[in-house]
Write a protein that binds this DNA or RNA. Structure first.
Lengths: 202, 202
DNA sequence: GTTTAATGTTTCTAATGTAAACATAGCGGT
DNA sequence: ACCGCTATGTTTACATTAGAAACATTAAAC
């Protein structure tokens, strides 16, 4: 929740206080129960208790609002991954981060789609310079000395977890926790014997 | 193109001849230039030269029409893969099919999304019992004797190519042909030394 | 305290999915 | 030949959407 202390307790004034944050909150909340396609600006405006077109004072259009939601989503994803890493420091960080990626996607399907699927054709690579991306690259560098090979490993690992998340989200694969562990098994993938020890075993 | 011989040349009668096929053709054509979200029933009806609500005589709702388009898309994908396999019989079929998957996705972004991303939450796994899926499984069985391991290989391979396709479609990775070849390299993946020989080299 | 820029509101338009009622045409049975 | 039945299209209607334009209010600067 983005909390913003508006001027104290001015319950209902003409101006909202921080409508922008309220709309983003409404968007994040809505994405927990709805899919992206079913979200309308009007709905968010209603939730924020404001007229439909007030949105346009803060976002040029719908895409801009979704783009802002995407940024919030990326931060959440990175935080979730780092929490997972902190919780099991003895495991392969590479695999732990990957599993967290998929689990976060399954736990936040709407937001995940906003981040990766929706993000309008040119506002792309919103993920490219995020904390999550840097984390992934540093793990790859640990495992591979050759930078070109490390880069390839990054892409392969990203594609694997992203594809797994997508297929599960779209109902093509069962959203099975054990399946995630099996697919993202450092011992079976990429010839990685892992720097740290691995754990999850079928 | 779905060609249907209506009764000969009855140019403009009240009844269309085969509106269902015409709508699907219009949909496939539209998906070549537009993304799924921008396609409307009314547009397809216009293209078919018919009133907006005529669609509902052939499809209960928009989702049903898209679902029919998805079936057509899956067939196209499988045909494309088999053409790729036939064109290079000496290569690793596993890798060739995977590259074809990604290339087809890049060549048909709209239709690919209809097949895998859109397909409504419960009409899922439209791909599950397709020719493409069976092909994938038979290749996995060639490489892995243990059926459980083969199944895991299927999922890993599918996730990898699907994720690569998605990330490229969504602008997160450059839609680079060489990158596809590098990521889907049987020598680097899954410890496969391949039954046949491999080719593509960086 | 007046001006001003930021923020919200009303009102409007064009597009969309879909329901309901109506129209037309080809078919089978008599 | 006629009569209806059913499949298929059409018209009309409605609720909802994204967004533009013009107007209202308020907080803050001067």
């Amino acid at each position: 929740m983005i909390t913003v202390s508006t001027s104290i307790l001015e319950a209902r004034s003409y101006h909202h206080g921080d409508l922008r944050a309220a709309l983003l909150d409404a968007g994040l909340a809505a994405l927990e129960t709805q899919d992206i396609g079913d979200i309308s600006l009007r709905q968010l405006a209603r939730t924020a208790g404001v007229s439909a077109t007030a949105v346009y004072r803060h976002f040029p259009d719908k895409a801009a609002l979704l783009s802002a939601l995407a940024s919030a989503g990326i931060e959440q994803l990175a935080a979730f991954q780092q929490a997972a890493l902190a919780a099991r420091p003895q495991d392969s960080g590479f695999a732990t981060a990957g599993r967290a990626y998929v689990r976060w996607a399954l736990a936040n399907p709407g937001l995940f789609r906003v981040v990766f699927v929706h993000s309008c054709p040119d506002t792309n690579s919103v993920f490219g310079d995020s904390a999550a991306a840097r984390m992934l690259q540093s793990y790859a560098a640990e495992v591979e000395n050759d930078p070109a090979q490390a880069q390839q490993l990054v892409v392969q690992a990203w594609a694997l977890v992203h594809g797994l998340a997508m297929l599960m989200l779209d109902g093509q694969l069962p959203p099975d926790d054990a399946l995630i562990d099996r697919v993202i098994d450092p011992r079976a993938l990429f010839g990685i014997q892992s720097g740290s020890n691995s754990d999850a075993s079928p």
